[in-house]
Amino acid sequence: MVETKVAGKVAGDVHTLTTPQGSGPGKPVRNAAEAAGPRPVEERSRGPGERAVVEPGPAGPQAESSHREPDVSPHPYAALMRERRLAAEAEGRARRDTLLYLSGVTKSFDGFKAINNLSLVIEKGEMRAIIGPNGAGKTTMMDIITGKTRPDRGEVFFNGDVDLTHHDEAAIASMGIGRKFQKPTVFESHTVEDNIRLSLSGPRSVLEALVHRKDEAERERIEAILETTRLTDKRKTFAANLSHGQKQWLEIGMLLAQDPELLLVDEPVAGMTDAETEETARLLREIAATRSVVVVEHDMSFVRALGVKVTCLHEGSVLSEGSLDKVSNDPKVIEVYLGR
């Protein structure tokens, strides 16, 4: 993709330097450069290896150019268009295998860039921890993924080709993206069981809800989730009466009930005791066995307990990415986040 852009750039630049009628010793070279991108042959064989053969610059392809010349559409605009199309297709292929694909996302509030040209890829089945100082854009990023906020620029794709910027929260949730808020948000006037029942995946129409009947399958699913989240004996308790940690688990349970492909979890262990933190890490790992999870967290020991790939955000873009050890030894990360 990067290479394509470079080639296109060269083609365009050269063209601007050349008059259409230009002839003389320089011409073949120019043609070769113009031909570099748009060739049909290129389209078929876009592997990096082959590219390398074409790319080596003005000096290399001189000999080749003479026999290739006839195939080439000489019109520079058509060449440019084809460049773009090819680039888009390449991108499409690149994101097809991903679960979540953010590219060049920017969002500013009153001039403050909360997200600045952020690109992030989550593979299917991956668990990712996101760290970063306050104001790094972690929550805004989640807002953008879940449809609460529309980005000013950039692309957000789910499952390869679903453009999330065109959908609202409810639609995105129904596609299979669950979100846990930083502050535990559960339905406090309902029992634990009802909280989960309302979250169970299934029809979301108002009239269906009016005539809905509880059945055995539903009961079993609730049972399973209560089991996973260790809330079985609290099933009749009003959510308002749960402890902070239990509310966090209930919220995770509600996400599970949605049966999402991707879970976005915002600071799940903030305010938890050590025992609760450990339990939460276990819970998340268990969930990650079957789904993709993105966890935003400040607690480094918790991140370490998760043992997954880490992305560090800073001022709305990715500062560093890799294993926790790699990221935590990155001087930039130490500078802005971890401290010396």
């Binding site: 879940t146 929260e169 669950g178 339905f187 406090e188 309302l198 979301r204």
Partner: peptide, 10 residues
């Protein structure tokens, strides 16, 4: 009680 929560569960 929590309108946005209902939205985020679909």
């Amino acid at each position: 009680d929590a309108e946005s929560r209902t939205r985020f569960i679909g």
